[in-house]
Design a protein around this nucleic acid. Structure first.
Lengths: 233, 233, 233, 233
DNA sequence: TATGAATGAGAATTCATTCAT
DNA sequence: CATGAATGAATTCTCATTCAT
């Protein structure tokens, strides 16, 4: 079963055991697992707590899921799928040049990290606790995400549009910066997700040291610079 | 007690129960704890495993330490102290200008992440599991580290030597990039720690968008640009 | 309810969930219970497995039967009834002398152990797990079976046709030997049930040490010796 | 660890939680396991009950043994070893002729079934519940016991001293009869173990249909016939 | 007739910790 | 300095059973 139905990533209401309607136990449980895993970590969390948080019995958890491990796997897998969908959608609607594609990827990633902040944190912290049928699949997906970033950067370097000497380190730095957002972003803070994305687009472009563009003044590449309100040109 | 005596950060030999010499149980145990916590996470690790790995009995663990929590605290605290010593030492021997200071901090951080890779990972993952006497102290230390970075960047921005529009995001990006090193760096890989530091110095300077320097062509700022073999000046 | 409709004793096809026809759930379930109880023992078996094996839902099991215990009772009771019918039928069609009656009982028992091998094993192993309404009834039946054997042997001893000094031990030995057949008999093995019965008739007669018969050279006593291909007379 | 120290096979005192002396938990637990497994069967017994019966905590059980399965294995293995020792000792001190050897084996087996009645029952009922490292070893031992019986009988048949037509069925009958003793023998009953053994020796000799002996009226073969007080020669 | 959803009790096992020696 | 023995609380998970539909 997939857990993608539950869009809300936030551990809403923390403890709201609002009488789960019959038949919807599966979602209630993954939602609860998300909260509890995020709060205490996979090994620190007990499925008793998960069931309690979901307002169901421990046995109901085993009716819907095959165990603690599967609960984690469902969470992570659903997250990764959502992330890939987000990236693909962003890349599909952008120019073909490396800079535009890099910007699109940054925007998609920031969007995802903000929108599914909790899942992002869980993924970052608890990935290691995945056991074997699931682990392999997700490792592969994770690698293909890395490849997505790297290919774009390498292409930019080849085309002389990015001037970084160490493309792998550039990629790592950009990814690390974007991923870290989930750790500090406060949904009720003062910065809008869209605005935040543009700031990180700007950072990413600086990391790859994009060459100043004489031509190519089209939509994708221009906004970041402009919208981030850099003090002076 | 402090555990700083054990410099070696690597889980060397993994399982080497080489007859702990009388009296050195304390270090053997923190070393073992480091390995086991790193491998399985704080909650995933059992102190039985720690004792076994150290080649001692469970009771010996309780002779030397007051419990599992204290073992974690000792590890993290020792790590943070080492980090601060490293940073202070680096800042003490550098110029007073923001760029030089930022570079020094990056070098110190990269050095630490590489030198104490395992402790860095544990700190990143298990900090949340610290309970109250210890937690507060370390949170404070952690905040003062953040302040260290932020002050330098803010000063650079004020002096117009850094041109980034969002200094806090710049700081976060730099820290995230440096911290992530512990997650991927392979000690027997192909890049030297010193060389790696220069690459990250370069990345950091790009993130803060350092203004091109007309004068001031002294040691600290020049190397990164040069050594990273950027295609064109 | 009785389960005697299902003649086939073999756990045929093990796992054949062949679309239970409407209304025949009861038999499908006792058949499945037979297989599962035989494979894993009463306490080792779960009624979930029984229902699954029967190709029905757990709830269906509770529609047809009142629980796990009743399932076991139905199985055992049906077996005992079959056994008694078999014995009575055999005794009804034989001579009145102890030797003939003993032979008839052996034949009936061997026939039953071979024909309902699985039920025989379950009876031997799981009888102890019967709880109270059922247990008493079956204990009584079991005792009356013992009485059946003992009476015949005692009569033979009284009439000097059996010469065993310890009739109870003789009875126990004969019963044990016959019962054990269920544990090793392979339905697709090389010995026919009828042939096997004659071998055990021969063994039983030796155990009771039947006196050599001058007259009475009729069917029952002759075959074993002859048909068993004794090397030399 | 072995459990052979505890010679007493009887579930003595059933529930006597007589303050286990420190350090002797291992034996107390196997003794308790013997009782509980015998009473309720392996799957029907809970290790909670075992620990309670032993007068120890559940955790102590895991200190001494690695689990429920190991407890069963220890019990069965110790029993089999004792049985083999008993058989070997009996065969070592007897004549070389098949009849004497068969008698010795019967005596050893009856002795064992009476002396370790409970272990015998457990072995008969719970053998199937042994899981893999242990199962294989014990299956092998069990087969070699069967071989012991069969070899003797086959030799007797070859030497024309036993006249049974179906040596394998004879062996099965004898073994079944002897094994069954554990199921009905009451230690405080009216028959002495030695006496019982002679009765079964007599039964066994009749099952293999030993040829009447003209010469050879020595110790080993004579007693059974004589001591069982057969009515008349 | 049948089922999908749910439950409470209890299963085996592991944990951090303590105590007597 | 160190250990072997023991514990109570908690863990994940399975069980037989029931209820609403």
């Amino acid at each position: 079963m997939t857990v993608s139905e539950s869009e809300s990533d936030e551990p809403g209401g923390s403890g709201t055991t609002s009488a789960v309607p019959r038949g919807s136990g599966g979602v209630a449980l993954t939602d609860a697992a998300r909260e509890v895993f995020a709060e205490r970590g996979y090994h620190g969390a007990s499925i008793r707590d998960v069931a309690k948080r979901a307002g169901l019995s421990l046995s109901a958890l085993y009716y819907w899921h095959s165990g603690k491990q599967e609960l984690l796997a469902a969470l992570l897998e659903d997250g990764v799928n959502d992330y890939f969908r987000t990236c693909e959608s962003a890349l599909r609607t952008t120019e073909a040049d490396p800079a535009s594609r890099l910007c699109a990827l940054v925007r998609a990633t920031v969007d995802y990290r903000v929108r599914r902040r909790v899942d992002s944190t869980i993924a970052a912290q608890e990935f290691r606790n995945l056991e074997q049928p699931h682990a392999q699949r997700l490792v592969t997906l994770r690698e293909s995400a890395t490849r997505l970033w790297q290919d774009i950067i390498d292409e930019g370097v080849r085309d002389d549009v990015f001037r970084c000497a160490y493309p792998r380190d550039a990629r790592r730095a950009i990814q690390a910066a974007c991923n870290a957002i989930a750790q500090w972003y406060a949904p009720d803070g003062d910065v809008e997700p869209g605005e935040l994305a543009e700031r990180y687009v700007s950072i990413a472009l600086r990391i790859v040291d994009r060459a100043p563009q004489v031509h190519d003044r089209r939509k994708a590449s221009a906004p970041p610079r402009g919208s981030t309100a850099d003090p002076a040109p």
